[in-house]
C-alpha cells in the first residue's frame, strides 16, 4: 500500500499549487468585485453583478471546460491547462467571495462609519482603518469555508488533463485495478489532511484578528 504514496504525493504538489494560485486569484477578485458591488457608479455595480451571478449561476466544472476547450477557440490561443484551471477556480470562488466581502463590509455597524466621520477621517481612511479591519474579522470564517470548497474543487482539474493527485490516481488504477480502493482511500486522506491544515491556518488568523475582543 505504501508504494502508492510517492506518485500520489507528487500529484498532490500540482493540486496544492493550483489551490494556492487559485486562492490568490479568488481573493483579489473577491475584494475587487465585493467593492464593485458597493460602488457608487451604476455601471460598476451592474458589471460586477453580472460577473458574480454568471459565475455563481453556472457550474465550476462547466466553467473549467469552457476555459479549457472553448476559450482557446474563441481567442485563437493555446491556454495551458494550469492557467485554465486557475482562471476558472479563481473566477468562480472570487464570485462567491465577493458576496462575503460585500455582506461583511455592510455588516460593520453604521455607528463606526459615523464615528469615523465625526473624527473627520477621509472616506478612504474610514474604509481602510475602521471598516475593513472589522469586516476582515467577520470574513475569515466564511473565507475559511470557501477555501475548503476551493481545495475540493481542484480535484476537477483532472478532467481537463492536469496531472494532479486525482489524475495520478487514475493512472495508477489503470495499471492495477485491484488497488483502486487503496489508491482513492489515500487520495481522500491526503485531501483531508490538507483541508485540516487549511482550517487550522484560518483559525490562527481568526485568533489573531480577535486580539483584545474576548
Amino acid at each position: 500500500m505504501w508504494h502508492l504514496l510517492p506518485p500520489l504525493l507528487d500529484g498532490m504538489k500540482t493540486t496544492l499549487l493550483v489551490t494556492l494560485y487559485s486562492i490568490a486569484v479568488a481573493l483579489v477578485l473577491a475584494f475587487a468585485a465585493g467593492f464593485g458591488r458597493l460602488s457608487k457608479s451604476r455601471t460598476v455595480r451592474g458589471v460586477t453583478l453580472v460577473y458574480v451571478e454568471v459565475f455563481r449561476g453556472t457550474s465550476l466544472l462547466v466553467q473549467l471546460f469552457w476555459m479549457y476547450f472553448a476559450l482557446p477557440l474563441l481567442l485563437d490561443v493555446r491556454i495551458p491547462a494550469m492557467s485554465a484551471a486557475v482562471l476558472a477556480l479563481g473566477l468562480n470562488y472570487g464570485a462567491y467571495g465577493s458576496e462575503v466581502v460585500r455582506s461583511c463590509v455592510l455588516a460593520v455597524p453604521k455607528g463606526q462609519t459615523e464615528a469615523a466621520i465625526a473624527l473627520n477621517l477621509t472616506p478612504r481612511q474610514r474604509m481602510r482603518r475602521i471598516i475593513l479591519p472589522q469586516a476582515w474579522r467577520m470574513m475569515l470564517p466564511a473565507f475559511g469555508n470557501l477555501q475548503i470548497e476551493l481545495l475540493k474543487g481542484t480535484s476537477l482539474v483532472y478532467l481537463i488533463t492536469l496531472s494532479d493527485v486525482t489524475f495520478r490516481g487514475m493512472v495508477l488504477r489503470s495499471s492495477n485495478m485491484t488497488e483502486t480502493p487503496a489508491i482513492f482511500g489515500w487520495i481522500l486522506i491526503l485531501f483531508f489532511i490538507v483541508a485540516f491544515a487549511l482550517t487550522r491556518l484560518i483559525r490562527f488568523f481568526e485568533r489573531r484578528a480577535a486580539v483584545g475582543r474576548g
Binding site: Y158, I187, L188, F196
Partner: peptide, 11 residues
Amino acid sequence: RSTPLLIQLIV
C-alpha cells in the same frame, strides 16, 4: 465534508 465529491464518486 472536507474531501472532494469527485473522489467519493470514483470510490
